[in-house]
Design a binder for these strands. Structure first.
Lengths: 205, 205, 205, 205
DNA sequence: ACTGTCGGGACATCCCGTTAGT
DNA sequence: ACTAACGGGATGTCCCGACAGT
């Protein structure tokens, strides 16, 4: 990585938590200047404007979540364990946050949905990835016969995303991890209502 | 209502959706000036600063939700119907929004939790009221024998708040009411797992 | 005094120390509103604008000094005692201030001399009255033979005014009455250099 | 001097007389903007806020007086000539002002003593320097035997500062240099009452 | 005579982005 | 690639004064 790219990456890494905590409108370029120690020009060299930086920072925050998810889901083959990995991802957002400020998708969706199309689009994309993961996992379970055939994958994914993102919001508001934990506990129990108890690793190869 | 109070109320009513859509940091006093047609001096006469106006606007947005909830819960005596009223409240936020911009508690919690203690406190208060309603409703059901005695009221309330607020967020992000509807559908089914089927109005008098 | 006049006077009395402490530019009409408990309109009823109030307040502050001087000089017939009364007036400004903020003439002269002709004129008028008192007192002493005939009344008055106003300034800056006391002590000794020791009351009738 | 420093210095030099004439509260940043031709952003780049600029402007005005005093006192070894240099400094403030608006210490002390601790402190510091010069000069004279041993250095310094600052005020108010001249004339004569007539240069080496 | 309400503009400060210079 | 310096405009707040109503 060239020196310039290194600087660029460093800016992103330092900007990400700031945007995630204060929001797009609540963050000024000067905040980034102070955090990075660079000058204004130095930052604008890498990002044409505040928007471009915010987008990159969002991407970075999301990449931290993706990486964490990759680890959590590694080796998980069963429907249940894969869906549980997703739950643990969100629970870990509260318990051992990869970025300050909670879930970037949640934060960005809430701030940007009516005001900032570009950011909104990004958040939507990530959310869609997660929903897609759930939908595909459930579908595959159905195909494999581990999941009750009349299970609605869309219903499961909507519920999970809602309960997990909502759990993050409530836990952050109360500063109490129990809320997300209870949501996860419920979802875990919920899995049993449509996943066969006999499911085992060999099912999914 | 005196003329001044009328103006004040009018400012609040016009400011509420603006704050709810753009957020606190994303809303400028000039936005309010333009929306109300008043001058800056005229607005600062009623609200000492932006904070005071934002707080009042939040209160107003919440009052609209409270009023809607009051209607939804009116005459509802059973545990199930009362909890369903709460779900319908959030579902209606998407289907027939009382204020533009989604749930003010969600929006405010997300923006303010790390940056604006006064707003955060207000959001927390409202969230606590809702949680309290759920907890008390479940407890009463247990006392009356309609609800399975080992049901955890805190667990129910955390799950419901998470799934409903999260459902609002996801539905707004996708601009698709189906997500909150699916969350509500699940919760409705979930009620059956701890509420006696035989529950009827005469139980709670 | 009618009710209106009473209110007017009350406003003046409460505005005077505020203007004297914070200066004309540093005082806002809202400061006066807060201090009086009246509304803005109530004040503008009595004073067409901020200027008019400031002028009246200055006059009032000066009147307090005049009254105090009247008491100090009462019955004083000799050249020395009359000049000493003037010194005690300024010393008392520090030791037992009739208005907060020091000498209104000094304050107003400093702030207004280059910026506010009306206020400047007022301050100049009062200063001239004091100088005039000194000049006439010395002249009369010369006429009566108590004061050395080659004494320069203008010189005495310029020195006294300078040393007294300057003494007030230095004492206020240091918050230490000793500076004005030392200036007065010097002036008192200075009087002996041109006033006959044998001067006694019968000289001035 | 770098370009930035040059600009900064230029701002100070143009701001100093404005602050000295109109006072801190009476001067707006726009006044500075107009005087310098710079934009607001350009000025705030060099001074974080109005206070910082006012402080720097005060320092600059004082530095002009210090430089003038340095010239006046250069080569002056006798008690009398050194004290006379101080008098001439203040007299020159009226006759050939280094900054518009009179003595910055006087102006600042009057405006700031009850309202602006930082400015007050600065003014006090400078005043203390001057007083200290007088006290030390007189003390040295006593040690050298040129000054009457029972002379009170504190008394001399308080009187001189009072008469000189007060003289500046009166002369500015009347727009007539005679007042400060008369005060200086008196002080000059006053020196003879405690300084030996035979004092000559060889006394102080 | 006094209050309540409001307009219009000023004020200090912040903010995004650009440019010259190295 | 990075800094220093700056412009131009927006932002929250203050401030003087006006006016309607009582």
């Amino acid at each position: 990585m060239s020196k310039g790219e290194h600087t660029r990456q460093s800016i992103i890494e330092q900007a990400a938590p700031i945007f995630n905590v204060r929001g797009y409108a609540g963050t000024s370029m000067d905040d980034i200047v102070k955090a990075t120690g660079l000058s204004k020009g130095g930052i604008f060299n890498h990002f044409g404007n505040k928007d471009a930086l915010a987008l990159a920072a969002f991407d970075y925050s999301v990449s931290l979540m993706r990486e964490r998810f990759r680890v959590l889901v590694a080796g998980k083959r069963t429907t249940r364990s894969r869906l549980e990995a997703m739950m643990l991802l969100f629970q870990s957002l509260i318990e051992t946050p990869p970025v300050d400020g909670g879930c970037p998708v949640l934060n960005t969706a809430i701030e940007a949905d009516d005001t900032h199309p570009a950011l909104r689009e990004l958040a939507l994309q990530v959310c869609e990835d997660w929903r897609d993961f759930i939908v595909r996992t459930v579908r595959k379970g159905i195909e494999l016969g581990n999941v009750l055939p009349d299970t609605d994958p869309e219903g499961v994914s909507s519920l999970m995303m809602a309960a997990l993102e909502g759990g993050v919001m409530v836990s952050k508001l109360y500063n109490d991890a129990n809320h997300i934990r209870r949501a996860v506990a419920h979802l875990t129990a919920y899995l049993d209502t449509f996943i066969q108890k006999s499911e085992s690793e060999e099912n999914s190869s």
